Structures are given as C-alpha cells and as structure tokens.
Amino acid sequence: MPAKPLLLSILEKGGFRGCRLCLVLTMVALTACSSSSRIEQQSKIARSAAQTAAMVVDAWIAGAVPSNYASATLQSAADTLADAERQIESGYSSETPERRGVITAIGRLSAAARRAQARIKAGSPPQVSQAVQELRTAATEFAAAYDRYSAPKS
C-alpha cells in the first residue's frame, strides 16, 4: 500500500490550521530573506557589469576592439546596471541608509557606463580616458556602499 502524501495526512488529522500557520511563517521568512539575497545577487551582477564596462573601455583605448563593439557592450552594461538598480528598489526590504547607498552607487555606475558609451561614439580618447576614471571611481564607491550594507549589524 503506497504511503499517503504528507499534506493529505495532516489534513485528515485536522492539522490544517497548524499547516497553514507553518506555511505563512515559511513565506514570511522567505520574503525577509529574499530581499537581502536580492541585493546580494544584484550586487554581484552590478560588480560584473562594471568590470566588463571598464575592461571594454580599456580595450578600446588600446585599439583592441572596434568602437561599435565597445559601444554595444557599454550599452548592455549600462542596461544591466539599471536593471539591477530597479530590482533592488523593487524589493520588499525596509529602507535603510545602507540599502539606499547601494542603489545610488549602482545608479552612478550605470550613468558612468552611459557616459563612456557616448564618449566612445564621439571618438574622443581623452574623454574616454576620463570615462574610465569615472567608472573606476563609481565602482569603488559601489564597493564601499555594499561593504557598509553587508557589514554585521550590532
């Protein structure tokens, strides 16, 4: 004789209220965890997109990649960063200065990638060199903001 599914056994014994309470508590716990893990996940994506943007600009300056490739890659990186920013903002986490700092820093990264793209399209190496510096500065600010966010709370 096959074993009854667990849920059916609980319902037959009148344990529906207990089961429902466990389900609600599990959902609350997962929701609380998901906003934090959402920031962690999107921060990893943002870090990767920022590194990609900096590498493609360096490669363009060195003459290793054509302008259209660098421009398309920077557009993709900027879009990825903007999406990461939106994903974190749409989380159900309570607003803290640390969380806001991560969101703001990712927005700056996205803007820096868009400026780099525009400067590459314009074909101005001195301005592109400045864009690399802006990307690196924004990446450093993002790393610091994320470190503040992920630091143990006392």
Rank of each mutant, 00 (worst) to 15 (best):
S76C: 01
I10A: 14
Q75V: 04
R136S: 01
A112Q: 05
S129K: 12
P66H: 13
P125M: 03
N68A: 05
R17P: 09
R20M: 14
A113N: 12
P2G: 08
L21E: 15
F142G: 06
G15E: 04
S9A: 12
E134N: 08
T96Q: 11
R148L: 09
R115M: 07
D58L: 02
Q127N: 08
T140G: 02
R148E: 07
R20D: 15
E85W: 07
T26P: 14
S34A: 12
S90M: 09
C33W: 14
V65L: 03
S129G: 14
E141D: 11
L74G: 08
I103L: 02
T96K: 12
K44G: 11
M27D: 13
I45E: 08
P97D: 03
E98F: 07
R148N: 09
R47H: 06
Q133C: 00
T26S: 15
A29L: 12
A116Y: 01
S93H: 08
I10K: 13
A46R: 11
A78H: 03
S48N: 08
I61W: 11
R47T: 03
A82I: 00
L7E: 15
T96R: 12
E98Q: 11
S71P: 07
A50I: 09
I39T: 15
A62F: 06
W60T: 05
G91Y: 05
L81T: 01
A54H: 14
T104K: 07
A70E: 15
V128K: 13
T140A: 07
G18V: 02
R99Y: 01
Q133H: 04
Q87G: 14
V57S: 13
A116D: 00
T137V: 12
S37C: 14
Q42E: 02
Y149W: 13
S90P: 05
A46D: 05
E141Q: 11
S43N: 10
A138Y: 01
E89A: 15
R100F: 06
P125S: 09
P2W: 09
E89P: 15
E98L: 05
S124F: 01
S90R: 09
T80D: 06
T80F: 04
S71M: 12
V102Q: 00
R108L: 04
L135D: 00
S34Q: 10
Q75C: 07
A72G: 09
Y149C: 10
I103P: 01
A70N: 14
D79C: 00
P66G: 06
A50E: 06
A138S: 02
I39C: 14
E89D: 11
A118R: 04
E134G: 04
C22Q: 07
I88S: 10
G123V: 01
C33Y: 14
Y149L: 13
I120W: 03
T73E: 15
K4F: 03
K13V: 00
K121C: 03
A84Q: 00
G18H: 03
A72H: 09
R136F: 01
Q87P: 11
A29D: 10
